[in-house]
Design a protein around this nucleic acid. Structure first.
Lengths: 213, 213, 213, 213
DNA sequence: AATGAATGAGCCTTCATTCAT
DNA sequence: CATGAATGAAGGCTCATTCAT
C-alpha cells in the first residue's frame, strides 16, 4: 500500500498480476458468453492476444480458472452487500426498510448492470461439475447467513416478528432476490427490475393478503 | 389381431414405447448424477444393458434426449401443480391458504422426493447450451404465469391485496419456491423442507415485520 | 423357355427371381445416384418398399450386390455390342465403316440414354475396392479384345492397315469411346454426342493431318 | 534475423510448410494404395509418425486433404504438359509430330512412373463424392482445352485438317491418352507403354484404314 | 517468460449385418 | 419367408494439456 512496495513486488511481478487479472476477466467474458464447456482455452487467449500456452503459466488448467472467476464474482457480490450495510447499523423498522432498499439497489446494480453476472453464476456455474455445484450451494448458504444476520438483528431489536424462522426466512428472501436476477435475464429493462424489487419488498413487509379492517 | 387389441398398439409397438421410456429415465439418472457433459451415450446404454447403437434408434442424438428428459420433468411438475388445484377452486383466504399449502406439498413431493429433479432442472439444464438456457427461462416464465393466475383470482375475489403487482409478486413467490428447492439440495431432510415451506407461507401472509399494535 | 417350366421354377421361385431383379435395379439406381459409399442397404430396401433385412435373403452383403449390378451392366453393354455385329459380318471398308457407326450408335444408346450407366461404371465402380478396380480393368481388357477382333478381321481382309498394332489400336479406339461417354456426362445433349462420335470416326479413318496432295 | 532471411520465411514457417507437404504426400500414398474411403486419418498420421491430431492442424478434415492431393496432381500434370510445349512453338507437321511425341513422353513419365497417379485420378477421385466427380469432369474439360489449343494452332497453320472438329477431336485424343494410362495400370512395362503411345500417334496421323492406291 | 506445434484420450455417430419374432 | 430391432466395430474430429524452442 505504500509507494515503496515490499521487495516482492517488482515491476515484473506487478505486470504478472496484471495479466493474471486480465485473464480472469477474459475468462469471465468467455464463460458468460459461450458457456463453460463451449469455451476453449484458446478463446480466452485469443481475446487477450496472448498465446494459449501462456495461459498455463498463470493457471493450472481450465477448471482452475473458472474457480478464480467465480471467486471474483462472489467477492464482488459480498463486498457490495456488506459495504456500509452492516446489520447492526440500523435500529428502527423504517431505517431497516431503507437499508433493505439500499441492498436491493446494490444487488440490482451488480445483476442488472451486466446480465452476464447472473447468467454465469446461476446458469453456468452449477453445471460445470459436482465440486462447483457444491460451491454454488455454499454461496447460497453464505447468502443465507448474511441475510439471516440482518433478520436476527431485527428480531433482537424488536422490529421484526419475534417468532420469525430466521434462517428459512432468509432463504425465502434470497429466493426472491434470485427471482429478480432471473427476471433480469429475460427483461433487462431497469424499470422492470425496480418493479420486481418493489414487489419483493412489499412481499416482505406487507405480505399478499388483503388488510383485514 | 384379437378384438382386444387396438390396431395401433401392437406388442412390438408397446415394447418400443417402453424402451423409449426407459431410455429417458436412464438418461435422467445419468444427466442428474454425472452432469450432461460428463455423460456419454454409452453411460446411458450401459445402464440399460443395451448397445449404444440402440440409443440412436430412439433419439436423434445426445441433444435430443436431454430435451425429452426436460420435457418429461416439466410435464411432471406442471401436472402436479395443476391437478386438483385450479386457481378458481377456492374463494376465501383460508381456502386459499390451504390450497397454497397443498401446492407447496406437491412441489415438495417432487423436489424433495428426488433431489435429482431440482439438480437437473436448476443446476444442469441451463448450462447445456443457449437453447436450453432459454427453455429454462421459459419454464420460469410459465411458472410465473401459473402462479399469477392464482394471485389474480385472489385479487378479483378480494382476499388478496387489490394493489398487488400480480406478475412480479408471482415471480417473488416462485423465487421462494426455488429457494426451497435449492435448500432441499443441501438438506434433503423432509422436516427441514416443511419448515422452509412454512417460512415461505408466513412470508406470503404475514410478512416479516412485527405487528404494530 | 417352354410353357411348362422345369419343376424348379415354381411360382414362388419366379417371384423370388423377380424381386432379385428389382433389388439389382434399385441398387443400380442408388449406387449411380448417391454413390456406392453413400448408399445404405436401407436406401435400396426403402426404394422397393421392403424391409432391409429382406435384402440379405437375396444377397450376401453390400459388396455382393454391387458385383451383380456391375455384372448386369457389363452384360448389357457386351450384348449391345455383339448383337448383329459380329466382326466377320462385313467384308469391305465401307461396310466396316457402317458397322462402326452402328456400334457407335449402340454405345451411344446405352451411355447416352442414361448417364447413370457411365457414371456408375467409370466414376463409381473403380473406387469401391481393389477387387472392383481389377474388374473394371478386366472390363476394359474385354472391350479391348472385342474391338481387337473387329480390327483383326479388317486386317485379314485387307481393308485395314496391315501393320496395325491391333491390340493397342483397339485400346486407343476404346479410349475414344470412353471419352465420348465422359463427354456425355457433362453434356447429355444427343446432338453433341453425335458430333463426338463423328469426330472419333474421322479420327479413325482420316486421322487429323491435312491431306498431302 | 539475418539479412539472408526473408521476413516471411522463418525456420518454423519452413518446417510447417515441409510437414504440410509431407502430409499431402502421405495422403496421396494412402488414398492411392487403400482408396479414399478405406483410408483413415490415422493411416496418414501413422505413416508419418505423427499424432493424428496433428493432421488437423494442417487440414480442415479428410475431405480437405484429398482436394489438396488432387490439386497437387493436376498441377503436376498440367505443368508437365505445358512446360516447353507451348502450342505455338511449332509450325510444321513434322515438328508437331515431334511435339506430340514429347508430350506423350511427358505424360508417360507421370502416369507410367507411378501407377498410383492414374489410379488415384481415374479410379479413386470420381467416386469420392459429387463435388469431386465434378472436379474430375472439370479436369477432363481442362485437358480438352489444352489439347484443343494445339489442334487449333495446327489448323491455323494448315498442317492439320481444315475441317477438323477441334474440340471433339481433342476429346478423342485425350480419350486415347486416358486409354494409355489405364493400360499402364494393367501393364506397367515401359516398353508396352511406348507401344501404346505409338499406336495412338499412328491413329492420329494415319488412321486405321489401309492406304488406297 | 512466452509461444504454439504436437499430442492422444475420448466422444459422438453411422451403418452393415444378425437374428428373434 | 419377411421383418426391423438390436448391435458394436469403426472412424472422424475436438481440445485440454505439454514441452521444445
Amino acid at each position: 500500500m505504500t509507494a515503496q512496495e515490499s521487495p516482492r513486488t517488482t515491476r515484473a511481478e506487478r505486470k504478472k498480476q496484471e495479466l493474471r487479472r486480465e485473464i480472469i476477466d477474459a475468462a469471465f467474458d468467455c464463460f458468460a458468453d459461450l458457456g463453460y464447456h463451449a469455451t476453449g482455452i484458446s478463446d480466452i487467449a485469443t481475446k487477450l492476444g496472448i498465446g494459449h500456452g501462456t495461459f498455463y503459466r498463470y493457471f493450472q488448467n481450465k477448471r482452475d480458472i473458472v474457480d478464480h472467476v467465480i471467486d471474483d464474482l462472489v467477492a464482488r457480490i459480498v463486498t457490495a452487500l456488506t459495504a456500509e450495510n452492516a446489520p447492526d447499523a440500523v435500529s428502527t423498522l423504517d431505517a431497516y426498510r431503507e437499508q433493505t432498499a439500499r441492498i436491493g439497489d446494490a444487488l440490482a446494480q451488480i445483476f442488472g448492470e451486466d446480465p452476464r453476472v447472473p447468467r454465469l453464476l446461476l446458469f453456468e456455474a452449477a453445471g460445470i461439475d459436482k465440486a462447483m455445484a457444491a460451491r454454488v450451494l455454499d454461496f447460497f448458504e453464505l447468502a443465507t447467513e448474511l441475510t439471516a444476520a440482518y433478520l436476527s438483528h431485527g428480531v433482537e431489536l424488536g422490529y421484526l416478528r419475534a417468532d420469525l424462522d430466521i434462517e428459512n426466512s432468509a432463504r425465502a428472501i434470497n429466493g426472491m432476490i434470485l427471482a429478480s436476477a432471473i427476471a433480469s435475464l429475460r427483461n433487462p429493462d431497469p424499470e422492470e427490475q425496480r418493479r420486481v424489487s418493489e414487489a419483493v419488498r412489499r412481499m416482505m413487509y406487507d405480505g399478499i393478503a388483503a388488510r383485514r379492517e
